[in-house]
Design a protein around this nucleic acid. Structure first.
Length: 155
DNA sequence: GCCAACGTTGGC
DNA sequence: GCCAACGTTGGC
C-alpha cells in the first residue's frame, strides 16, 4: 500500500515540536484526539510509515518539520484513566472509543513554513488546513502538497 | 479579545 | 428527530 501523508496540529503550549524532540527516541503517542472524524483517520487510515507534517497552531501557525508514523492506530490509553484529561467513562477496553498512533520526529525544517506562506503557494490552495473552519487536529495531505511543503522547509 | 465554524448536548 | 444553546478551536 502506498504511503500516505498527514498534517497533525498541536498547540505548542500544550505539546510542541520541542517536546517531541525531548522524548525518548523522539517518539510519542499522539493521544487526546476527541473528534470522531479525526478518530476514524487514526483508527482506519493512518499506517506505519506514513509521513506527518508537524504543525503548530496558535502563536506559531507553522509547520516545524516532519515526523513518521511508527505505530498505527491503537486505543488511546488516556481514555481509560480516571481523573486524567481525556478520560471517557463511556469507553471500555472491549469497545474503545478513541484511538492514537505513535509518531517519531524526523526532519526539522530549516525554515518553518508558516500558514501565511502556505497560502501563497498555488499548489496548496486545496489544502485542508487552509480551508475556513477546519479545526481538525489530524487531516490528510496529498503527495504533491507534502512535496511542496517539505521541499521548501528543508532548504 | 473577538468571532466564525462547528461539534455536542439536552429539552421537547 | 429537531434545533437552540453552549463549548471549543484557532485565525485574525
Amino acid at each position: 500500500m502506498a504511503i500516505k501523508y498527514w498534517l497533525m496540529k498541536s498547540d505548542p503550549d500544550t505539546y510542541g515540536w520541542d517536546d517531541l524532540a525531548a522524548e525518548k527516541r523522539q517518539t510519542t503517542c499522539w493521544d487526546g484526539v476527541r473528534n470522531y472524524q479525526a478518530r476514524n483517520m487514526l483508527r482506519d487510515e493512518i499506517r506505519e510509515g506514513d509521513g506527518v507534517l508537524f504543525y503548530h497552531s496558535q502563536t506559531d501557525k507553522a509547520v516545524l518539520g516532519t515526523a513518521r508514523v511508527v505505530r498505527s492506530g491503537y486505543p488511546d490509553p488516556t481514555q481509560f484513566k480516571s481523573g486524567v484529561k481525556g478520560f471517557d467513562p463511556a469507553s471500555t477496553r472491549a469497545e474503545p472509543r478513541w484511538y492514537a498512533v505513535d509518531i517519531r520526529r524526523e526532519k526539522a525544517f530549516q525554515t518553518p513554513i508558516t500558514l501565511a506562506r502556505m497560502k501563497e503557494i498555488p499548489g496548496l490552495r486545496e489544502m485542508g488546513l487552509l480551508r475556513r473552519g477546519n479545526r481538525l487536529s489530524v487531516m490528510p495531505v496529498t503527495a504533491s502538497e507534502w512535496k511542496l511543503v517539505v521541499r521548501e522547509g528543508l532548504v
